[in-house]
Structure formats: structure tokens, C-alpha cells
Amino acid sequence: MAPKRVFTALRAVASAVVAGAAVLLVSFTPAYADPTPTPSDIEAQIEQKWNALEPTIEQYNAVHGQLTANKAKAQALQVQLQPLQLQVDIAMSKVGDIAAGVYKGGRGSTVNAVLASSSPTSLADQLATLNMIARTQYAQISAVATMRDKYAADKRALEALIAQQARQDADLAAKKKQIEDQINQLQRLRQQAYGSSGAATGALKPVACPVEYTGGAGGKAAQKACSLIGKPYIWAAAGPGGYDCSGLTMAAWAAAGVNLDHLASSQRAQSRRISRADLRTGDLIFFGSDTHHVGIYVGGNWMVHAPHTGDYVRMVQLAGYYAKNVSGYGRPG
């Protein structure tokens, strides 16, 4: 496809992406007739906001990825332009030497016309009028100048697209932050509502669970895991009377419509790898180089897991022993 058509198509795609994002962002100011909203009321609003946030994040990732790739292309074009420009400069220097010789020979009027040219490309075109210069040299100079002009035109078009995508990137980032801030405000309200309703149940569930509610499959999986707190650890069990570690996470994600094997290492292979910075409610946390244990993240640096024989499904913080032995994070689905 011709460069001009490529840039036109990319520009159209980028514009469509941001146009779609613009309609997703609506006013998210919590408003309640009841001054004491229930946790379920707040969770319904979080679900709504999360559904708006995820497409915005995906659109931001798409534009940001295009922007990064196009910046790399522009840099590559600049690298290609440098030797081409040098070749043109050398060719022009040779032409100048030849033209000076012609001038001394008495053909000054023609040479003056050539030297008066302000454009390297037009200079190459006018060289055809100099009978003293071989056609092969003219062809070489013209070819290099044409190639240089092509790369320069491609680079200008790419730079224009980069400028447009940079604006779109900043706009989507602002929308993403705005929705995230609104979700965080609702999370604080939710924790207050759970606190007033006595959601904590002692050592097994010291705080509201999940600590951070999110919409989508991850939120549903985390809710299911939280509902199983207090069930006994039973080796090789996946409910309903008890669970082992991978049985718990399998049951949690089954509630979200995602099937996982009853084995921690298999669940790791079935999940998309993520970083600690990207960890969100519902993600799986794996332990040990041999992946011998797995828990499910419920927000706020807490996870739910089935520890070992004689214990119960419980919440624990990702600190101390648990923080030191994490070997990876995964997102099923």
C-alpha cells in the first residue's frame, strides 16, 4: 500500500478510537436519595463505572501502542534520511566542480542558471541541460534526490500522525484517570458501608471482602472466593464442603464463567502473566518456584486462600512470608 494511503488509514482508525472513547465517559458523581447507601448500592455503581473504564483502558492501550510504534518508525526514517542527504550533498559538490569548469570554458549562461537553483531536486532536473555532464551522473543524482524526498515526505506525514495520536493519548489518559478517581471514591464509601454493617468476621475475615470491588469476571471471582471464607481446608477438594488452594481458585473463577484446572501450575499456564503493578481484584497469585500454592487477590494488598490442612479459607495480607514467596501473578479469562 502506498505510504499516503497507510497514513490516511492509520489516522482514520486513531480518530475512530477516540471518538468511541468520548461517548463512554459520562458523569459519575455518586448521588443517593438515601443518605446511608448499602454496599450493594455502591457496588452497582462501581460495576457501571468499571464497565466504562475497561473499554477506555483498551482504547488508551491501542492508541498508546500506535504512538510508540510510530515514534520508532519516525526515528528509523530519520536514520535512513541522513546517508541519503549526505549522498545528495556529495553529488551537488561534484556538480558544482563540473559546473565551475564549464563556466571557465565559456558556457557561463547555462551554468549560472543551474547554480541559481534553490532546490536540490530542481537542480538535478536542470542538470539535463548541461551537455558537458554525462547522463549517468544525472541519473544517479536524480535517483538519490527522489529517494530522499520520498523519505522526507513519509516522515512529515508520520510526524503529523504522531502529533494527532499524542493528543488522543493524553485525552484518553485523562479520561482513564477521571474514572479511576471516581471508582476510588466509591471504594472508600463501600468500605465505610461495610464497616457500619459489621462485615468483618474476626481472624478469618478481618476486613470487608473483597477489599476493592471491581466489575467483570475478576470481581465475580473475588466475590465467590470471599463467600467461601470459613470453609475448611480439605486436600484435593473443590467444594462445596471444603477446598484446597487450587480448588478454591477454580471454584471462584467458575462462578465467573471461566474454567480452570484443579492444579496451581496448570492455572498459572492458563492465565495471562501480569506484573505486581497491574494486579487487580480477582487475579491469581502463585507461590514457589514449583507453583505449589495459589491464592486470589481481593484488593488492598489482601488475598483469599486455602492455606493447609487444619486451617480454613481465609484472608491474609501480602506481607512477610507471603510477599517473599510470590513467584508470579496471572489473570484468567
Results as ranks from 00 to 15, higher is better:
residue 138 Y to F: 12
residue 138 Y to S: 14
residue 139 A to G: 11
residue 140 Q to Y: 01
residue 141 I to H: 07
residue 142 S to N: 15
residue 143 A to W: 10
residue 143 A to Q: 14
residue 144 V to K: 09
residue 144 V to R: 12
residue 145 A to D: 08
residue 146 T to E: 14
residue 146 T to L: 11
residue 146 T to H: 09
residue 146 T to N: 13
residue 147 M to Y: 12
residue 147 M to Q: 15
residue 147 M to F: 12
residue 150 K to A: 08
residue 150 K to L: 10
residue 152 A to N: 05
residue 152 A to Y: 03
residue 152 A to L: 07
residue 152 A to F: 06
residue 152 A to R: 07
residue 153 A to I: 08
residue 153 A to C: 04
residue 154 D to R: 03
residue 154 D to S: 07
residue 157 A to N: 13
residue 157 A to F: 08
residue 157 A to I: 08
residue 157 A to D: 15
residue 158 L to T: 02
residue 159 E to P: 03
residue 159 E to G: 13
residue 160 A to M: 14
residue 160 A to L: 13
residue 161 L to E: 15
residue 161 L to C: 06
residue 162 I to R: 00
residue 163 A to Q: 06
residue 166 A to S: 14
residue 167 R to P: 07
residue 167 R to F: 11
residue 168 Q to V: 04
residue 168 Q to W: 08
residue 168 Q to S: 10
residue 169 D to M: 03
residue 169 D to Q: 12
residue 169 D to T: 04
residue 169 D to A: 01
residue 169 D to P: 03
residue 170 A to C: 06
residue 171 D to Q: 15
residue 172 L to E: 01
residue 174 A to E: 02
residue 175 K to P: 09
residue 176 K to H: 10
residue 176 K to T: 13
residue 177 K to D: 15
residue 177 K to L: 15
residue 178 Q to W: 11
residue 178 Q to Y: 15
residue 179 I to Q: 02
residue 179 I to W: 00
residue 180 E to Q: 13
residue 180 E to V: 05
residue 181 D to C: 05
residue 181 D to K: 08
residue 182 Q to W: 00
residue 182 Q to N: 11
residue 183 I to S: 00
residue 183 I to A: 07
residue 185 Q to G: 15
residue 185 Q to R: 04
residue 186 L to H: 08
residue 186 L to R: 00
residue 187 Q to I: 07
residue 188 R to V: 14
residue 188 R to A: 08
residue 189 L to W: 12
residue 190 R to C: 01
residue 191 Q to E: 09
residue 192 Q to T: 13
residue 192 Q to V: 14
residue 192 Q to G: 06
residue 194 Y to C: 05
residue 194 Y to W: 06
residue 194 Y to D: 05
residue 195 G to M: 05
residue 196 S to D: 15
residue 197 S to R: 05
residue 199 A to R: 00
residue 200 A to Y: 02
residue 200 A to T: 11
residue 201 T to W: 01
residue 201 T to G: 06
residue 202 G to Y: 13
residue 202 G to E: 02
residue 203 A to K: 00
residue 204 L to S: 02
residue 204 L to A: 11
residue 204 L to Q: 06
residue 205 K to R: 04
residue 205 K to N: 00
residue 205 K to L: 07
residue 206 P to F: 08
residue 207 V to T: 04
residue 208 A to L: 06
residue 208 A to S: 13
residue 208 A to V: 02
residue 211 V to L: 02
residue 211 V to M: 05
residue 213 Y to C: 11
residue 213 Y to R: 07
residue 214 T to W: 10
residue 214 T to K: 09
residue 215 G to P: 00
residue 215 G to S: 07
residue 216 G to L: 10
residue 217 A to E: 13
residue 217 A to H: 01
residue 218 G to E: 02
residue 218 G to M: 07
residue 219 G to P: 02
residue 219 G to V: 03
residue 219 G to T: 14
residue 220 K to T: 14
residue 220 K to W: 08
residue 220 K to S: 04
residue 221 A to E: 07
residue 222 A to P: 08
residue 222 A to W: 09
residue 223 Q to Y: 00
residue 225 A to Q: 11
residue 228 L to H: 02
